[in-house]
Amino acid sequence: MSAAEKTRERRVHRSGRLFASELGLMCGRRRNQVGLATLFALVVLVGVALKVSAMRRPGSRGGDLVSAVAGNGIYLGFAGLTIEIALFLPLAVSVLAGDAVAGEANQGTLRYLLLAPVGRLRLLVVKAGALIVGSVIGAMVVAAGGVLTGVVLFGAGPLISLSGTQLSVADGLWRLALAALYVATGLAALGMIGLFISTLTEQPIAATVATAMVGTLLWVLDAVPQLDWLHPWLLVDRWPAFVDLLREPVFLDRIVAGLGINAAYGAVFFALAWLRFRGKDITS
């Protein structure tokens, strides 16, 4: 093994350790654990509310995802994503993103991090990676929590796709996992916006609030019919397209377009974050 290879291996090893420690920090923070519990509690709440209304008025069943839960608990996974995609999941990612750089700067730990032989780009990549993992965990907790609650309250069975075909339980769960991953890509893209904002300030709260506001603003713009020419360019416009996975044959057009938009937003804002971070004076 040459010296260069050895150095590279050591570097990779070091990055891996840094990434692991970043994940450990992220998952170990009490506020993040509480946030995750809140995401879970919300689907439980929706499930209980649906159970109560189903007991009061049995037999009434609409066609949307939320009312489909009364017939099959697995739908609560999809319904949970639908309900939390607009506010709660983006809020959770905003909290993580606010912490990413501004949190370290605020605590005065950023300069110590940079004292270690770790490049700034590498540090930012690790932060971005942790945000992506956080997005996946958030979406998965909502989907899995929904299925768990739904199955306990309503039982499970084969699903009826939006196209009127029957899907086996395994097929339904597989599609739900894909839906959660798709939602996670969107959340990760919002996380990159948050990462950029996080490099602009030393106040994690400010970064969190600003990121959450950007997310909300995008949803508001997406709801204004007069701006329909703008909608395809908005990050959140195709987020709800995960329901297209419930069609037979699966309808991929909107999902592929959504993945493209998510990737474009993610790449541009990560690049902006790096441009800002590499020239930043770290004073605290």
């Binding site: 196209s163 009127g164 329901v243 297209d244 069609r247």
Partner: peptide
């Protein structure tokens, strides 16, 4: 022919 709207078909 399928009319594919937000979450219905």
């Amino acid at each position: 022919v399928s009319l594919v709207d937000d979450d219905s078909e």
